[in-house]
Design a protein around this nucleic acid. Sequence first.
DNA 1: CGTCTTTTTGACCATCCGGTCAATTTGTCA
DNA 2: TGACAAATTGACCGGATGGTCAAAAAGACG
Lengths: 198, 198
Amino acid sequence: MTMSRIQKRNRARIAEAALEVFSRNGFRGATLDAIAGEAGLSKPNLIYYYPSKETIYEELLTGLLSRWLEPLTALDPAGEPEAEILGYVSRKLELSRQMPRESRLFANEILRGAPLIAPHLTGPLHRLVAEKAAVIEGWAAAGHIAPVDGRQLIMSIWALTQHYVDADVQVRAVTGLADPLAGAAAHLETLFRRTLRG
Amino acid sequence: MTMSRIQKRNRARIAEAALEVFSRNGFRGATLDAIAGEAGLSKPNLIYYYPSKETIYEELLTGLLSRWLEPLTALDPAGEPEAEILGYVSRKLELSRQMPRESRLFANEILRGAPLIAPHLTGPLHRLVAEKAAVIEGWAAAGHIAPVDGRQLIMSIWALTQHYVDADVQVRAVTGLADPLAGAAAHLETLFRRTLRG
DNA sequence: CGTCTTTTTGACCATCCGGTCAATTTGTCA
DNA sequence: TGACAAATTGACCGGATGGTCAAAAAGACG
């Protein structure tokens, strides 16, 4: 079961190409030819490594999931509440900035009703959010931050940070700036700091 | 140029069917057969009314644009600042609740880079936002609300209100509730009220 | 009713696309 | 080097899909 040198190289190429193509065109808009071309392989050769288009997509998505949730996992119950939450906002924004393709990939999947990762959403994701939301609400109950619904707060952070990347055409059009993230960090810090201070 | 009785009826049916199909499957995922079926017409008959799939999509999108921006248009410079902005949040959320298909349609278009409505974004939308952002910043300068970037505030409102509908699978999975909008109104009011009060 | 226009449709076409397969090339290793 | 396995590919297939077209059916109207 150990992968040959060539296997390793080509699977890496395919993953990179698939991320590029799927994030730009969505699942239905992506074609095997496009992925193969981007990866520098022929279509039958691509299918030699992955049995189907769906398999490529699925493996790509699930492989990125844990990475995508890292910032939230890092939210520390023992830390200083406001700094922890604002730090999470900042890390999530930075992650979106550095991984725009991944962000769009997930946005697309979610928008379509999450046909592939629905189980993950109701399982691991639900649990992680429940855990961290409890931490946040604990802080609120202890009076360290203003009262707030933890789950709603976390979802707000997702919605806002990802918006700058997923809807970057719109953001650029509205602001007139070339960089959609210009001003984002400052605004989000203001917005969430005020929310946490009540 | 006046439309016959049959034309009016069938064009209305097509618009409704197209909204249904495009919003559920995106532009690429939608098929003429699906739209025709949903509208109760044959495919050639559908194409008798609209010359191409793109035309249907384009007319649908542009026809809904003004409707979609109504709540922002209604933001009144002469009103009470906090009430005006919170009222806008509430109206936008209500609009998303009542028009989830339209919301997804736009989300899809934006996510794909707005190939069709980009001109509208940089034109009318940019101007409308600039105008309303100036109003908000005027209120801030006068000390009626806490200092805030008007454009960023407006975009925040979009991102958050639409998230509940566009990402409803995720919201439902995380909250565990059947209604993705449960708690949304209260949370958003809290979040934005605190933001406006500094 | 008769004539003209509008509407509708079955049959068809070209292209795209996911995927297969047999055959060839390349790599591995004793 | 020879022999076997891994990797690669051109040619091809079947189904889906956007769109066409000629002919038929249904309305409109005097």
